[in-house]
Amino acid sequence: MTENLTPALATQPECIVFTDWDGTVTLQDSNDALTDNLGYGEERRKFLNQEVLHGRWTFRDAFHDMLESVDIPFPECITYLKQHVKLDPGFRTFYEWARENNIPVIIVSSGMHPIIHALLESLVGADAAAEIQIVSNNVNIDEATGRWTIVYRDDTDFGHDKSLAIKPYAEKSPRPTLFYCGDGVSDLSAARETDLLFAKEGRDLITFCEREKIPYVTFGNFGDIQQGIQEYMKKNKTE
């Protein structure tokens, strides 16, 4: 059976919101939290992020290096993250508004599906976890030992090229208005793909956008994103 690459079009939405998960929907990046506190630490993790930002490492290799340093069973990783990762204060209200207005929200993440689903269920609720599409990497777990390794979604230098989740929607006619929300180096591949990019203040994605002259709107939380989408759609209708 051929995979449906555009399931969010089923309700004929006027616009679609793609969003990064770690550090965007959540206040803490779960993968950073694992690496910094249960792996080899913040110093090397930040060094590798800069190497990716400046093109000296691929995201795929740097991310694998970070996660390989986390030497505890996968279930314990999820337990730790549930205790330490918090939700963006505006996301729940934003998601309810989007749902009421037929605006699909799609999580496009370089993280791992079981972690995102577990945190989404814990932080937002079972209904949201069942409804929100998650496009991400996966994980291979040794059931006997709990040892695990990331399973990348594709063969690109990103491990998961987020633009590949967006392009099928951009190529449709009629085409919905597309938004993307992100914060870091994992979002570089998606930065040019939508009508409006929201980049989190003070994060690496803004550094990249400034260097590459990619237009963006800064946000602090999802309340800003909701307001930005409302203003953008109102302006487009007026024009």
Rank of each mutant, 00 (worst) to 15 (best):
Q230S: 12
A170I: 01
H117F: 02
I225C: 05
D161W: 07
E239R: 13
R92G: 03
K213F: 04
N236S: 14
M1E: 10
G223M: 13
K82C: 15
Q28W: 09
E51S: 06
F222Y: 15
E239S: 13
P174E: 08
P104M: 07
D22H: 03
L196D: 09
E212Y: 10
E3A: 15
Q133M: 11
S136P: 04
L48A: 09
K46Y: 10
K200I: 02
I132K: 06
I16T: 04
I225L: 09
G146T: 04
G220V: 06
D155I: 06
N4C: 03
K172M: 11
G228N: 09
K237P: 01
G39Q: 08
M112D: 02
D187W: 00
D154E: 03
L164A: 08
E3K: 15
K82E: 14
Q83F: 00
D157H: 09
D36Q: 02
G125R: 05
L178D: 03
R192C: 13
R211M: 03
A165R: 02
T6N: 08
E201A: 13
E76K: 12
Q50I: 01
P13Q: 08
Q230I: 14
W148G: 10
E14I: 06
T218R: 12
A190P: 07
D142Y: 03
P89W: 00
S173A: 12
Q83D: 15
I141K: 05
G111Q: 01
V17Y: 01
S30N: 12
S136T: 11
F219M: 08
T26W: 09
Y95R: 07
Y152M: 14
Q133I: 12
P89C: 00
S122W: 06
E131Q: 14
L164R: 13
R44S: 12
N49Y: 08
L53H: 08
V135A: 10
K167W: 14
P13A: 09
V25Q: 01
L81F: 05
Y232F: 15
P73G: 11
V85D: 01
E121G: 06
F94M: 00
D71R: 15
I78Q: 05
V151M: 12
S136K: 07
I132S: 06
Y232A: 09
E14H: 13
R147Y: 04
A8V: 05
L188K: 13
F219C: 04
D22W: 01
R175F: 13
A10F: 07
K213A: 14
T194A: 09
D127V: 07
T207V: 15
R211W: 01
A199F: 03
Y40V: 02
T145Q: 06
R153I: 00
S110N: 07
V185P: 07
P89Y: 00
D195V: 11
S189D: 11
S69Q: 11
G55C: 02
E51A: 10
N4K: 13
A191F: 05
G23F: 00
E210H: 11
T6I: 12
E171F: 04
T2Q: 14
I16S: 02
Q83I: 03
G39I: 01
E121K: 15
E231L: 12
